[in-house]
Design a protein around this nucleic acid. Structure first.
Length: 673
DNA sequence: TATTCATAG
């Protein structure tokens, strides 16, 4: 048979790139890899940074296992997952260039909001979350011939679910192959999980990084980090510096202190360019880390969160300062509390950070802890996300994927039983699962939405309250980070601007006001700027809203609004929200504190709330621990609605003794009259 | 009475 591609003339550039590709370490193992993959259903490939695995392996797979049929049946594709959208896009573009094809044709990508693939596509990069979505509609993933899970060591929630799910699919599809690719990983753990699948090691290509430890433990990592920056700037040869800190405020503080201290040193030292880096920083500011050195030729000092550990790679970094801490999410299923805790990093994370110093030439990593603490105190790997999260949405996804027995589902790291129980309990109360734990019709519809179950529930019931237009806007606004900007130096003005949007009954309605105002002002970016509203996030909320509206049409949910001048306009919106959030209610005690219902946690209204009074009953979107236990994004509701709309949850036979219970008793009595 | 690590759908 004639291979069509042999008759195509490639551009000169194609051959130039090909020669470069052949020098990548992973090419040394091309034959071995393909031989092993032919003989096995699953292969594990460990490749360090710089091995070329993300761009080359999918092309090798395509060459050997690509579908050459002439279109009688639809071609089966090769999929390669990435934890992040930007990576899926940039890698697929690179590969399209290497293959001399137009992006979206033979090589494409699919992420939320953007499907850049076509009937011609044979190699597709997509986010791990997107593959999971596809699986919900195509449970055997029949459109794929080979699935490559890349960056598996990151252990994202979606990748972990795909592990267990794909193991099942492989049993039912002898023709499907799986390649698991990872950087440093617990090779044995992966191998034993995938029942002894063969493992191939690919060397990376990094410059050596000298690791320096402290002699004695330091007391104040921030102080120590700043001093180390100054030392490097004074004593070390040119080369940019990357400092890992834990959060926005800490980073901004550190940046001003570093600038000040270096200014104090005067002309005895060279100029510096100190740059903060964190996810909520506007993209234009983030881009500055990639700017070439300015005319003064100052040393670049980037002070970053963990975003620079995996998501953003800055070339030219020669010195890394690693204080050894990270801010991480932790979930306590007992009281359903999410918190952000500053905790020690893992050894894997420390090594990843160090590697950031050796991308362009040999570098140095200053670890602000002792060699002994590294050896003895740091755990080998970061706790996977699945062990640190509320799993109600994940459980709904698994049920939709057809996993009936969650307790025996083959998780690589099984979550705490209580976390699963909490998730099942919530889904049962929401009506997404019946008492036997089976997906209901309602649950089926809820699972179609890219939202947490409480939100999909309120969206699904909203037409019954005549306000689905408003609820879908609120869901969209809740799906993006806080849209209110509060710049240093203009805090009062920002707070005043925000107060103008405030709705007396609560923050959800304030978000609705902002959304409406944004639309009424033609989505204008200067309007946003003047009103201290983040335009980028408003655009994001708007595209999420469009996506939700498309899904609503698909599952035949009506879009409707009540008469705005009606007294009940906001009441119906609040009731619809309660129908999804009746498990997130707090009651104002006589002491003046709020207590969460059933869990009896004493909480404060988050300072960001626009409420100027304390309603007796409130629903909240999140319960978080930062400097104190807070409930965030709060709207007042009426107690009567609890007994009317959520009697199955507010069942007094099953309710701890407390002030809320007494209040509910009165409400039930009144209801019967 | 005092405020958000990262990421995905």
């Amino acid at each position: 048979m004639v291979n069509e591609s042999e008759f195509r003339t490639h551009s000169q550039r194609y051959y130039e790139i090909l020669e470069k590709r052949k020098t990548l370490p992973v090419w040394q193992q091309k034959e071995e890899f393909l031989r092993v993959l032919s003989a096995n259903q699953t292969v594990i490939l460990v490749g360090e940074t710089g091995s070329g695995k993300t761009t080359q392996i999918p092309q090798f797979v395509l060459e050997a296992f690509g579908d050459n049929n002439k279109g009688i049946t639809k071609k089966k594709m090769i999929a390669c997952t990435q934890p992040r959208r930007v990576a899926a896009i940039s890698v697929s573009k690179r590969v399209a260039e290497e293959m001399d094809v137009k992006i979206g044709e033979e090589v494409g990508y699919t992420i939320r909001f953007e499907d850049c693939s076509s009937s011609k596509t044979v190699l597709k990069y997509l986010t791990d979350g997107m593959l999971l979505r596809e699986a919900m509609a195509d449970p055997l993933l029949e459109r794929y011939r080979v699935i490559i899970l890349d960056e598996a060591h990151e252990r994202t929630l979606a990748t972990d679910v795909l592990f267990g799910f794909l193991k099942e699919v492989l049993k039912n599809r002898a023709d499907l192959k799986l390649v698991v690719m990872s950087a440093t990983l617990e090779a044995e753990k992966f191998q034993s999980y995938f029942s002894g699948s063969p493992l191939i090691n690919v060397p990376g290509r990094l410059h050596p990084v000298e690791i320096l430890y402290l002699e004695k433990p330091q007391k104040d990592y921030l102080e120590s980090a700043i001093q180390t920056v100054l030392q490097i700037h004074i004593c070390e040869p040119p080369g940019d510096v990357l400092v890992f800190l834990t959060g926005e405020e800490e980073i901004e503080d550190a940046c001003s202190r570093i600038r000040r201290e270096i200014q104090n040193l005067g002309s005895q030292v060279g100029p510096v360019n100190v740059l903060p880096l964190y996810s909520t920083l506007p993209p234009a500011m983030q881009q500055k880390i990639f700017d070439p050195p300015d005319e003064a030729g100052g040393r670049k000092i980037v002070v970053s969160t963990n975003i620079a550990e995996t998501s953003l790679t800055i070339d030219g970094i020669v010195y890394v300062i690693d204080p050894g801490f990270v801010k991480q999410k932790v979930y306590n299923p007992r009281v359903r509390l999410e918190s952000l805790l500053v905790s020690p990093i893992s050894k894997a994370s420390a090594n990843q950070r160090a590697g950031r110093a050796g991308r362009t030439r040999p570098g140095k990593c200053f670890r602000l802890y002792t060699n002994k603490s590294f050896d003895e105190l740091l755990q080998p790997q970061t706790y996977p996300e699945i062990l640190r999260s509320n799993l109600s949405n994940t459980v709904l996804t698994l049920k939709k994927l057809g996993v009936d027995d969650l307790v025996h589902f083959d998780f690589m790291d099984p979550p705490a039983p209580e976390t699963l129980m909490r998730a099942l309990e919530m889904l049962n109360y929401l009506g997404a699962l019946d008492d036997d734990g089976n997906l209901t019709k309602l649950g089926e519809i809820m699972s179609e939405f890219p939202l947490d179950p409480q939100m999909s529930k309120m969206l699904v019931v909203s037409p019954e309250f005549g306000c689905s237009n408003e609820i879908v806007s609120i869901c969209a606004m809740l799906s993006v980070p806080n849209c209110f900007v509060r710049p240093r130096g203009a805090r009062e003005a920002a707070d005043e601007a925000k107060a103008r949007f405030a709705h007396i009954d609560g923050d959800h309605l304030t978000l609705l006001n902002v959304y409406h105002a944004y639309k009424n002002n033609d989505e204008d970016s200067s309007w946003c700027y003047q009103n201290f509203v983040n335009h980028r996030l408003m655009k994001a909320a708007d595209s999420i809203r469009q996506q939700l509206v498309r899904t609503m049409a698909r599952v035949q949910l009506r879009l409707c609004s009540n008469d705005f001048s009606s007294r009940d306009y906001y009441i119906n919106i609040r009731k619809a929200m309660l129908a999804g959030n009746f498990m997130q209610v707090a009651h104002l005690e006589r002491s003046g504190h709020y207590l969460t219902v059933k869990d009896n946690q004493m909480v404060q209204l988050h300072p960001s709330t626009g409420l100027d009074h304390k309603p007796t009953w409130v629903i909240y979107n999140e319960y978080v621990l930062t400097t104190s236990k807070f409930i965030r994004t709060i709207t007042g509701i009426r107690g009567e609605w609890l007994v009317d709309l959520a009697a199955h949850y507010y069942d007094l036979d099953n309710f701890p003794e407390c002030e809320a219970r007494q209040a509910l008793q009165k409400l039930y009595k009144k209801q019967r009259q």
